[in-house]
């Protein structure tokens, strides 16, 4: 039997990197301490906040919602609301929405669901099909990421949010770090910190990552131990991505050399620090307002509007263009 390093009871988790084993009670205590330390260290929240938790229905965001709702009971000035962006991925999102609704009800937390179809006129599945037909060079995850971020910021603002909390964990962050090293995208690496720049734009809501130092496995275990673990469904687009491969390799490395992940996170924080003076000015100075929609943009148009023009699902005045041919998908929907 593997015993807890603190009380000798049966362990549910062993961290080889830290050389410790944890029973359920001591794991939850470790988890709570770690997240609270992250929140404090990076000054994520002030005493009065309306925190919008970005949820997908996956285990990480359910864990974050559960965690912050519990923590908010100790902070009178906090209001927690949940926001789910439904991209419209057939056979995937329907399931995760059900899991989200179950947890949201149990926690009696106020929530809003925003749909690609309502906001953009098309679901992600349709957008990907349109992009394919037009031979646009973007990966499904690019459309998804750009439009999600766009709608998240917009809807959070409409909900009165003062800060958006996302469930990105240590694994997510270091995967993105490696991806951007490969792509030589240092301006993106600089933005990978635990708190997004305050970017002096009136429409920009600050984003924070309370699980920045939490391993994906720890967040999953928190979900399992709190009966939050959702039905397991994987995004159908996930296996096509570089991220999926990187994740496999990093997990192999971590298994062979415990502590690799923490070490990579330290490497990221160090490079952000080293680049800070140089890049902060550039990034902050670049923030403008999109000519079409008025949302924050780093050029004349925001990424979401650029994509929509290229896909021809929106005209230059910002009106949705209906009836784009989505081939078989369109036929299926009209039956």
């Amino acid at each position: 039997m593997v015993n807890c390093s603190f009380c000798g009871r049966k362990a549910v988790y062993v961290s080889k990197a830290l050389g410790r084993a944890y029973c359920k009670k001591h794991f939850l205590e470790y988890f709570d301490k770690k997240v609270r330390r992250t929140i404090r260290k990076y000054k994520m929240f002030s005493e009065k906040e309306t925190i919008i938790v970005a949820v997908s229905g996956g285990k990480d965001s359910l864990a974050l919602l559960h965690y912050l709702v519990k923590l908010s009971k100790r902070v009178p000035g906090w209001t927690i609301k949940a926001l789910l962006v439904d991209e419209g991925i057939k056979g995937y999102r329907e399931t995760t929405i059900k899991d989200f609704l179950r947890v949201a009800e149990e926690l009696s937390v106020e929530y809003r669901i925003v749909r690609f179809r309502d906001e953009l006129g098309y679901s992600l599945d349709e957008i990907i099909e349109i992009g394919r037909r037009k031979k646009l060079p973007y990966h499904p995850c690019s459309y998804c990421g750009v439009f999600r971020r766009y709608l998240l910021n917009k809807a959070a603002r409409e909900m009165g949010g003062t800060v958006i909390a996302t469930a990105h964990n240590l694994d997510d962050v270091i995967q993105t770090y490696l991806m951007n090293i490969v792509k030589n995208s240092w301006e993106k690496i600089v933005r990978l910190g635990p708190v997004s720049g305050t970017a002096g734009h009136p429409r920009f809501i600050r984003k924070v990552k309370p699980f920045y130092e939490i391993l994906e496995k720890e967040s999953a275990l928190y979900a399992v131990l709190n009966n939050l673990y959702p039905r397991f469904v994987e995004c159908p687009y996930a296996q096509q991505s570089i991220r999926w491969h990187l994740r496999k390799y990093i997990n192999k490395l971590e298994e062979m050399y415990p502590g690799t992940k923490y070490s990579m996170l330290r490497s990221l924080l160090r490079i952000i620090q080293l680049l800070e003076d140089k890049t902060n000015k550039i990034i902050e100075g670049e923030i403008r307002s999109c000519h079409i929609c008025g949302e924050p943009a780093s050029h004349d148009l925001c990424r979401a509007c650029t994509y929509r023009l290229e896909l021809e699902i929106m005209d230059e005045n910002g009106n949705i263009i209906k009836n784009m041919d989505t081939g078989a998908l369109g036929n299926q929907l009209s039956i």
Partner: peptide, 17 residues
């Protein structure tokens, strides 16, 4: 890879060791 799974044995979460 044990890194990628939470393990329950006979209904109880356990460490992979």
């Amino acid at each position: 890879n044990p890194e990628e799974y939470i393990v329950s044995r006979n209904g109880e979460v356990v460490a992979e060791d």
